[in-house]
Design a protein around this nucleic acid. Sequence first.
DNA 1: CTGAAAGCGCTTACAG
DNA 2: CTGAAAGCGCTTACAG
Lengths: 346, 346
Amino acid sequence: MALDIKSFSQSIGVSTATVSRAFSGNGRISEATKERILEEAKKAGFSPNIHARRLNMKKTGLIGLYYTFADEPIFDYYIMELAQELIKAAEMRDYAIHLELGGSAKGKDVDRLAELTRGHGLDGIILVVDGRSSGLKLLKAVHDCPAAVISGMPWTPVGDEIAIELDIRSGIHEAVKELAKLGHSRIGFIRGTADEGKLAAYKEALEELGLIVDPRLIAKGPLSFADGRNAFNQLAAHSPTAVICSTDVLALGALNEAQRLGIRVPEDTSIVGMDDLAFSAFTTPSLSSIGIPRQQMAKTAVDCLLARFDMGKNLGRRASSKHVINTFFVPRSSVCKNETKKNSIN
Amino acid sequence: MALDIKSFSQSIGVSTATVSRAFSGNGRISEATKERILEEAKKAGFSPNIHARRLNMKKTGLIGLYYTFADEPIFDYYIMELAQELIKAAEMRDYAIHLELGGSAKGKDVDRLAELTRGHGLDGIILVVDGRSSGLKLLKAVHDCPAAVISGMPWTPVGDEIAIELDIRSGIHEAVKELAKLGHSRIGFIRGTADEGKLAAYKEALEELGLIVDPRLIAKGPLSFADGRNAFNQLAAHSPTAVICSTDVLALGALNEAQRLGIRVPEDTSIVGMDDLAFSAFTTPSLSSIGIPRQQMAKTAVDCLLARFDMGKNLGRRASSKHVINTFFVPRSSVCKNETKKNSIN
DNA sequence: CTGAAAGCGCTTACAG
DNA sequence: CTGAAAGCGCTTACAG
């Protein structure tokens, strides 16, 4: 049914080599015959078999993206929004992203990663990791394939992987500073999972500004909407005028609980989320957050990976590289000047 | 660097055929040698070249998903949440999803689809279409590859494609009925793009219940958060007690405008969105919506596609098939009983 | 159950 | 610029 290069080339009276050249753009071929061949191919409905092609060219045009879905879609927004930018960044380079899901649902987990990379299924692989040890495990499974690690916490390269480290702390510093500027001094914090860096940044920022770190203004989420509600409820007893949450989802919970308690946001309490997911701009009030330059991250990952892939053909040794991506405060209506005198919670 | 089957098989003293059998599971091979080979492979770091494999087996283990990203991520939540379910459904069958982006950014658009499908890059392709004509264009580009069309509006198969039609009307009927049960009679509607079906369902449902269709209670979004705000503002002048919106994003806008106008949701006006995106459960108030059985849709698409792929090897002619997926009302706190006597908007 | 060999559909030195 | 031929790394009849 599907035409192959042999019969197609015969049917138009040229060699397979010539047809191949017309499609690949490699090798010398006259413009005229190239155009003619491409046109005939369209007419006849011929496209080169992609696998035979990749087998020969040792290039797939594919970059893998490996991560593990959460159970609830809301927790996957983060990776989905990142994936979108990666897809776009890859497209600019005529590459596609191959989504590869982690999770040991079938006990395979990391094996699949080894198979894919060693089997030449990918020209590069992006690992989105959520911790050092799990990240190392993944990285160890990758063979014969340039790898980039995207990490929300500090990542020191262990091998020749490209490290892309999101510096969430810079954004937190900025947020705290802005809040202080708006007259807030009782700034609370709702913790997430594996958030030592975030917490430390929050404390540091307060101290730099000469504000006191009050442990009663720190509550543990760590994850869900309900967690955010509970945590905010705890904090409310100690009248923070602003609360920073480790994720946007926690912030949604905080927003909800505030409303239930009759605490107005932002008039009584300002609320700030983290990650600036797309929906955050469209809540009521719109949620302030810590923004992530996703496009920059994606471009860095893709470009570095492809650079390494191209190098890999020539050079032997490859050095690791590390890129730190700064975050920033995104103020929206969930934040305003502190006018705390006016309200009298408990 | 990377081991191939020839040197690997030599190194452990068997033929390439035997190694191949150990990996593929096809052909007769003793358990003992199979296990031994797999173990040795792990030790030596051998994985079969995936392209050589696919070239021979005429099977890729890949299902394509084709659609076009919007400019703003918020409008891609719909497809992202669907993609997630497709990925999971594919995984159950040991398949992966290959995301292929549409958009004529490079004027290629549909050509790429032809290349991919004709070049044996995929075992099946899922087209998420948003209109008849664009859907037909895509479908026409697909060759030599089983295709499934997922459509938010009625889709009559034109060829042998699998049609998966989302019946949003059933959910709208349910929502209107529930609202009526709650005492609402002035139920407004905010229109979306290409929403004739939705609008018709809304009108039908009202009429079935003996309620009057008031054109002043119908406003046009059609798309963005800001559109939702504007539309709600228009409707507010005519005091609907409930408003159904063509998308969740429009509903978020409506929610926002209601708050700005001092209209309480749901006490003064109930609001219902459509598509039930994951974030809708976590707004304040939580957004009622029309739910989509995404998992079912995904499973249907993947299973039908793979069934057809397997058939394709044997049979010639293939019949089209059509699957209608019902939607349903998801009540949340943005909806309550109509107590309209209490409020007196203009 | 296992091996030797042909073949999957391309690409790319190698000649010309 | 073009063609004949070897080769990419597997799989699968075909023998045994």
